[in-house]
Design a protein around this nucleic acid. Structure first.
Length: 671
RNA sequence: GGUGAGGUAGCUCAGCUGGUUAGAGCGUGGCACUCAUAAUGCCGAGGUCGAGGGUUCGAGUCCCUCUCUCACCA
């Protein structure tokens, strides 16, 4: 065993404008397994994270929800903390980038950067929304691409031709916030001189801080030349004001990674840990960041440079992972594949997903697909059929024929030794974040354990009373093989391991426990450690979430990028002209109206629509509109909704039902 | 467009520095067993390792070209 290491680990900060979904969970699980593994090995390993709470999207979402930003992020923080905890993510601290500690550290680091000459001021021209009285981030300006003429493109790049530009280059630009045409205005911004760090960053990357393929990726950026980084934003902005610069705020991406430090500072404040030990320039403590590959730029260039510029240590490792896809497709709300962690947890234990992720996670930045069918068969086969089965098929004999006591010796110590000898390769796989390799190795051993039991056939021996001690021996062997495997899997399956510890009457297994068998000790009666998954229940995860309102829930706060669809995909949506025959208020629902609509050939049906604030039943009866006719029926508290009426607008009173021109008749297909 | 990753049995993947008839799990066909949450064990079917060319005594493994997929681009 290596000498005791001191390690601080982070995973990326979830943004506080939405729930934790399975993509966040993938990263949290990857990080948590790594942390638990090191703890199991006896190292001092700490894991901190925080909510990322600043920036324009949060500010606008809070406005739209009629809340203060502080209130919004406080609510989200509670949900995020609960979701992560319920996934058994063992965070030592979960803070917020809006916490006072973060403001203080940001200010301190900024002063350090400024004093060292790494901050420069420069005036830039930027799009300004005269109606909303604010400068517009690139993503909040839309218009026609100056390069290829594609309409409706964002202010930073064109999704059609790939050109990049600044919002002021767009033709016919429009503010996504007010809908008015923005003007250009000058503003003084503060820049971090990233270019000054090129050599130091290159040597840092050479130190092995990032994966090989990531290093290649970074080379590309180096070869283009590092640009200085704009770290300021003008008021109104939800964030921290820059010291000595009234009306100027730190850009959200400046204070977000500093949130790692702030969260750790909170941990220090309530323990004996010393912040300086971890972040002084000469710190020997390891610092590891787990992130998605999309934010490599911030973590592998800006972040080490900012730390270094502020006179602090650099990260030991930045580990990027790929994205989660579901049934082979990007997570998408419209496909029903946007699965929140809460929704998963309502039906399934956290460890099933943890195991599945572990079984498929390699050290690279490949995407990982959650195939729901495979998820169910894999869990049932690996965990229930193989692993837990070892204990399940042995425990009964120990109870019945051996008085609940393990034998004093193993009949085949060399088989146990083979299991114990795997510790090295399994540990190396965990350390290198190749959990899939670790799981493969463990499951291969589980196969061997089942083979062993099959060969020795304790159920036959048990029929001969004089061979009782043989039965006890075989089952002691089997249980010890199981025990070693559970110890190896403890980072992935902490709760199941705890149950197994209870079964063996041992407290807190460490990695070393796997090396020696448990002998001559009593065990508790066996209780099932894992239940089978019902594939049908798993499949239901991708059915439409029950939470969203039925009428087009246009959330105007964030201009969401609609991914392109093929004509075939579009044609799968059966849009029909419908005539509203009747409309009524729904008892107990303050947003819904119940509509009876005539869809021609398709007959009449009931549709619930969240348009009560905008329309009264009298407004609607007799008019024509458009419905999605093949939307899966959804059971609501008030009845079953058999479709969706189409409407535009941000919601509330500003909802506008679609109407066809004269001549359209109920049942006509819209295409 | 640039860059990165990847295309190996129906599915998910492993194949280290090139070397015997290309592997695993799941699924599938058959047999056995009945201790175990219809779990387990054994046997089998199933692959021209994306395509083409090259280097080599020998290439899934190295080089080149092409092709397809996925991802990222301050």
């Amino acid at each position: 065993m290596s000498p005791k290491r001191r390690i601080l680990v982070t995973s990326a900060l979830p943004y506080a404008n939405g729930p934790i979904h399975l993509g966040h969970t993938l990263e949290a699980v990857q990080t948590d397994i790594w942390v638990r593994f090191h703890k199991l090995r006896g190292h001092e390993c700490l894991y901190v994270c925080a909510d990322d709470t600043h920036g324009t999207p949060i500010m606008l979402k809070a406005q739209a929800d009629g809340l203060s930003p502080e209130r919004l992020i406080a609510q989200v923080h509670v949900e995020h903390a609960r979701d992560l905890a319920d996934m058994l993510i063992g965070l030592d601290n979960f803070g917020s980038t809006h916490d006072a500690e973060n403001g203080a550290i940001c200010a301190r680091m900024y002063r350090g950067l400024d004093a060292a000459g790494y901050i420069v001021k420069r005036t830039i021209r930027q799009a300004y929304d005269l109606k909303a009285n604010m400068f517009l981030p690139d993503r909040y300006v839309k218009g026609t691409c100056p390069n290829c003429g594609a309409p409706d493109q964002y202010g930073d790049s064109c999704e059609v031709c790939g050109a990049t530009y600044s919002p002021v280059d767009l033709k016919n630009p429009v503010s996504a916030i007010s809908g008015t045409a923005p003007v250009e205005r000058d503003s003084e911004h503060y820049f971090f001189r990233l270019s000054a760090f090129e050599d130091r960053l290159k040597s840092w990357i050479k130190s092995g801080a990032v994966q090989q393929s990531v290093a290649h990726k970074l080379d590309e950026w180096f070869s283009q030349g590092l640009k200085d980084w704009d770290i300021s934003r003008d008021a109104p902005y939800f964030g921290f004001e820059i010291p000595g610069a009234p009306g100027k705020y730190f850009y959200v991406w400046f204070d977000a990674p500093i949130g790692y430090l702030a969260s750790f500072a909170q941990l220090c404040a309530r323990t004996a840990l010393r912040f300086e030990d971890f972040f002084a320039a000469d710190s020997s403590v390891e610092l590891h960041h787990f992130i998605g590959k999309d934010i490599l730029y911030f973590h592998a260039l800006f972040w080490p440079a900012v730390l270094e510029g502020a006179g602090m240590r650099r990260p030991t490792g930045v580990h990027a992972h790929g994205f989660l896809t579901i049934n082979g497709q990007k997570m998408s709300k419209s496909r029903g594949t946007f699965i929140t962690t809460r929704r998963y947890l309502e039906s399934f234990p956290p460890e099933y997903l943890r195991y599945y992720y572990a079984a498929k996670l390699g050290p690279g930045i490949d995407d990982l697909d959650l195939n729901l069918e495979e998820f169910a068969t894999r869990l049932n086969s690996d965990i229930v059929g193989k692993l837990v089965n070892i204990a399940s098929r042995c425990a009964g004999f120990i109870g019945k024929t051996a008085g609940g006591r393990l034998a004093d010796a193993l009949p085949e110590p060399e088989l146990f030794a083979a299991f114990a000898a795997a510790a090295g390769t399994i540990a190396a796989a965990y350390e290198g974040r190749d959990y899939a390799a670790a799981v493969r190795e463990i499951m291969a051993l589980a196969d061997r354990a089942n083979q062993y039991i099959d060969q020795r056939k304790p159920w036959l021996l048990a029929k001969q009373a004089e061979r009782a001690s043989e039965v006890q021996g075989v089952c002691t062997q089997g249980l010890n093989l199981f025990r070693t495997l559970m110890i190896y899997l403890k980072p992935v399956l902490p709760a199941m391991a705890a149950k197994a510890e209870h079964f063996f009457q041992e407290p807190d297994w460490t990695w070393e426990h796997a090396a020696a068998p448990r002998l001559g000790a009593p065990i508790r009666p066996y209780e099932p450690l894992a239940l089978r998954l019902d594939p049908a229940a798993v499949a239901r995860l991708v059915e439409p979430a029950a939470a969203a309102a039925p009428a087009a829930p246009a959330n105007s706060a964030t201009p969401a990028a609609a991914a392109p669809v093929s004509i075939d995909e579009f044609m799968r949506i059966d849009l029909r002209i419908a005539k509203i025959l009747a409309a009524e208020f729904v008892e107990g629902a303050d947003k819904l109206l119940k509509l009876r609509v005539d869809v021609g050939d398709l007959g009449e049906r009931d549709v619930f629509a969240g348009i009560r604030a905008a329309y009264t039943p009298a407004d609607l009866v007799g008019r024509l509109t458009v419905v999605v006719a093949n939307l899966a029926a959804r059971k609501m508290r008030f009845g079953v909704s058999q479709g969706m009426v189409l409407a535009a607008g941000p919601g509330g009173r500003d909802v506008f039902l679609l109407s066809p021109d004269a001549g359209a008749a109920p049942g006509m297909r819209v295409k």
